[in-house]
Structure formats: structure tokens, C-alpha cells
Amino acid sequence: MDIPLLENGLSIVDAAFLSSQNPSPPSNAEVANEDAEIVGVIDGIVGEFIKLTGKKTENRPATDAGMAEFLHRELKLTLYQAAQRKFWHYIAIVKCPQYVAWRWFKADKNVPKTRYIGPWYLNAFGRLWWWAEYTRDPEAGKDQYARTIRAGQSQEFMKNTIENSLCGNRALVRSLCDAAFPASGIQMKDEQHRELVKRVNAMLVTTALDALQPVEIDEVVKSLVKEMNIPGEPEATQKTLGRKGFLNRLVGRK
């Protein structure tokens, strides 16, 4: 299946475009595959995003999780297609710049250029689709996007996950979501899940976690959480391990 690609996004997204709170789709867009079948699907999706732009701007980040699920459900892409940054540029600039401006505009700053023209993990639409892609559990039936919604309440967790190569290990992402944002129980604060992701990253340098079964990965994540000794979580049997203690544990040092 062909997908539309915007070839001249860089020349469209200039200072004037970025400073506009209500940018219009450009008339000088150069689009490859502009008659692709998927364009009809995109037009339907865009309508829902544009509806958001009429809403208040106080809690825009809170819309991300739900829109991620919606976008992923509607837009059936392979990973290869979704990795084409010019595809997301097409949606963000040609089809729905109004949503990008609404979501990312700040009173004292322009819309960051990367939300229109950046790589997929920064693009306003790409980041949502990929967040849903790697947090979705296809075997969970009607609850397949449960983690997308729960863990999507944290902008920091979303960012730290999809901007990180660890997110390609779906079992690991599911375990991290369950640890940081359990279906019931205390949710981690930003500094706590930030520390957890750091510890997992450190472990990936020396450990081939991808060679483990999902249930083993889950145990590893739970053991890391135990070592962090977060209030409300089961206490560690030893004293709280700070960062240095954790690294010493990695090398077998007491």
C-alpha cells in the first residue's frame, strides 16, 4: 500500500507557520502518492482531531492517550510505513496543522518545529501512533489499549519509552507500564518511573533481556522496582538501593 509523503515540509514550516495559532494547510505542498487509498482514511481521522481544537487549552496533554488509541485503531500501518517521517509530516502540515498548533502552542513560544517536521517520535501525530503501537496488547481483546490509556497519562513516561530503543521489546514495555501504572494500586511519580527506565537501560547494556521470556522479563522489572523501595511497594529485604548500590549489585559487588 502506498502512503502519501510530503517532500517539501522544510520549506513550508517557516517562522510564520510556527507562530500561527491557526495555521492553514499550505497550497504549495509537494506530495508523493497523494492519491493513495489511505488518504480517505486520514481525512476521516483528521476530523476528530480538528474537533479537539475547539476545546479549552488547559489540559491538552490529557487528550494524548485517547487520541493515540483512536489514531492507531483507524490507521493500519506497518512499522516500515510508520517509520517514514514524511508521512507524518504530511498529516501534521497538509492535513491537520490546526491540531498541532492547538496541542503544542504556548503563549510565549512558537510551536516547536519538530512537532510538524521532526522524526516520528517527536511529530505530533507520529508520537501518538507509535505510543499506541508499542503499548497495545493484541491478545487482550477489547482491553488491548488499556496500557496505552493508563500509562499515557504521563507525558514523561511516554517520552522516555518511545524515544528509547527499549520500547521495541513489547514484553518489557508491558512490564514497565504495569509496574509504573498498575491497573490498581499506587502509580509511580515521574521521578520514580524515570529512575526505573534508567535502571532498565543500564541493565540492557550488560544483559540480553530480549533473550528472556515475557514472564522472566516481568520478574526482572519487579525485582528492579523492589530494589527502588518505593513507598507502598513491597519492601526490599535489604536497605534501599540507591543508584550506586544498584550498579554495585550489577557487578556482584556488596
Partner: peptide
């Protein structure tokens, strides 16, 4: 590992 799609396995 494929960094562009984050796809990975062992």
C-alpha cells in the same frame, strides 16, 4: 535491532 522502527528481538 532496528532503531528506525525500534523493532528488536533475540
Amino acid at each position: 535491532r532496528c532503531d528506525s522502527t525500534r523493532w528488536r528481538r533475540a
